[in-house]
Write a protein that binds this DNA or RNA. Structure first.
Length: 461
RNA sequence: UCCUUCUUAGCUCAGCUGGUUAGAGCACAUGACUGUUAAUCAUGGGGUCCCUGGUUCGAGCCCAGGAGAGGGAGCCA
């Protein structure tokens, strides 16, 4: 007889059936006459209440059933006499798969701080909070593939090890098999990477975008969804050294199409969570952030405010006195400025057409000679959840910009060739997956929305 | 990387002006209780006061250095 998930056993349709449940004990309580065991198997935030008559089981077995133990229970599913749940199981058989020593098992019935749970990341998925977060994370990943697949995008696997370090997106992690203690050196005394595995310097990718563009200029619409690595010494609740990024890239799309896609996708994903992860989102709403549900619904319902960088400066400058950092045309926006815009317009804001000198080399240059077709989507609290642009498709203009920004042509010859052979207008953006999950779950630290966070000085687990 | 706050029992935290044997709640154990909902009540065990050095008759408390964590900023997604 196969076991049934707790999720299914909690459904009223299970009443009257004899079934087997397997999972981990959350709590046990009771008295001489009756024992209640709350069982969770990860299929849902809710627990199955097992009801056992202590006189029918040997004392040793019951003693081993403690918080954290893994057990199998067989019994009849009945309508619950108590008020906390619709169904419960009247247990006839109990088997303990794995005990959890009460003196050393770190999880208790009572709540723990998120900081403490980070220190026991190997066990934290067993908590309600991380169960909810991880189920939502899965659903968001699935919904992303579904969204793009349903709209004719192809999933392109961009490389994780990259030979170009010219993308300029951040500090990189070197990939090498050379002896770190005693690396081979060339005549100049520098490390000789021609002897390394790939015969050149290689790093972990900081972005799949450039490869994504190659795919878009063949398949039309593609997206990447993979891990990304930044060796920045960033210690904030919004940065990870290893994170997942979604990067759609579309031929024949301009900056407006790009905004339309970004807004539609974000709304789709948030709505997907509201309909498919209702229990988990509600749990997080009740436990951590009472505004969560309302905020998610509001983002789905309202159009995003769209404006140019220049228009945003015009909004910000009259409020100069409120800011710590000066704001004028040409400066990059600080967090406080982004926050101001988001709260001023009461929701997400899409900014476009930034000054070219604060944006990447590949962005399409506007006719004014000053701005480029960049696009940032700013979200409440998160800040920049998406960064993207229409790309410069003109070979000469792209090359000129690369020279101005001292990006070596020889490293990106393959990228330049897309502009040489059958170039076309195209656009795309990058969405930080964890920032999306952060927003959807209402968690406040990005380390709590990825199973095993990688941050400066921390690669445990 | 910068600014700032913190580090005391398994967890969350008190700890007075530097002074005897470092406390509480929860967790855990034992007992009580005829259906509980993070059950309740009673009793009990449990400490490298982050580390190193210094000041002092005396340091959890003051000073210096270090480590780790949180929040804010920068970099960005």
């Amino acid at each position: 007889m196969e076991h049934t998930s707790v999720k299914d056993l909690l459904n009223a349709a299970s009443i009257g059936k004899t079934a087997i449940a397997k999972g981990w004990v959350r709590t046990k309580r009771g008295n001489k006459n009756v024992a209640f065991i709350a069982l969770n198997d990860g299929s849902t935030i809710h627990n199955l209440q097992l009801v056992a008559d202590p006189t029918k089981f040997d004392e040793e077995t019951l003693k081993k059933i403690t918080t954290g133990a893994c057990i199998r229970a067989k019994g009849e599913v009945v309508a619950s006499q108590g008020s906390g749940q619709a169904t419960e199981m009247q247990v006839s058989e109990l088997e303990v798969y794995g005990e959890a020593d009460v003196d050393t098992y770190p999880l208790q019935k009572k709540g723990h701080t998120l900081e403490f749970l980070r220190e026991i990341a190997h066990l934290r998925p067993r908590t309600n909070t991380f169960g909810a977060v991880l189920r939502i994370r899965h659903n968001m990943a699935f919904a992303i593939h579904k969204y793009f697949n349903d709209r004719g995008f192809f999933y392109l696997h961009s490389p994780i090890i990259t030979g170009s370090d010219a993308e300029g997106a951040g500090e990189m992690f070197r990939v090498s098999v050379l002896d770190a203690e005693n690396p081979p050196r060339n005549e100049e005394g520098k490390i000789d990477y021609t002897q390394d595995f790939f015969g050149k310097e290689t790093n972990l990718t900081v972005s799949g975008q450039l490869e994504g563009e190659l795919g878009a200029m063949a398949l039309g619409k593609i997206y990447t969804f993979g891990p990304t690595f930044r060796a920045e010494n960033s210690n904030t609740p919004r940065h990870l050294a290893e994170f997942w990024m979604i990067e759609p890239e579309m031929a024949f799309h301009d900056i407006v199409d790009n905004q339309d896609l970004a807004e539609d996708m974000l709304k789709y994903l948030i709505n997907y969570a509201l309909t498919n992860c209702k229990d988990d989102v509600e749990f997080l709403n009740n436990m951590y952030d009472k505004e969560l549900l309302a905020r998610l619904q509001s983002v789905v319902d309202k159009p995003f405010k769209r404006m140019t960088y220049t228009e945003a400066i015009d909004v910000l400058v009259p409020n100069k006195a409120k800011f710590e950092f000066d704001v004028e045309w040409g400066t990059d926006l600080q967090k406080e400025h982004e926050n101001f815009l988001v709260s001023h317009f009461g929701g997400p804001v899409i900014l476009t057409d930034y000054p070219k000198h604060i944006k990447a080399f590949y962005m399409k240059q506007n006719d004014d000679g000053k701005t480029v077709r960049a696009m940032d989507v700013l979200f409440p609290w998160i800040g920049e959840i998406i960064g993207g642009s229409q790309r410069e498709e003109n070979y000469d203009k792209l090359l000129q910009r690369m020279n101005e920004m001292h990006i070596p042509e020889k490293d990106l010859w393959w990228y330049l060739e897309t502009r040489k052979f059958g170039t076309c207008p195209h656009a795309g953006f990058g969405l930080g997956f964890e920032r999306l999950v952060l927003f959807v779950t209402g968690m406040s630290n990005i380390r709590d929305v990825i199973p095993f966070p990688r941050t400066p000085k921390n690669a445990e687990f």
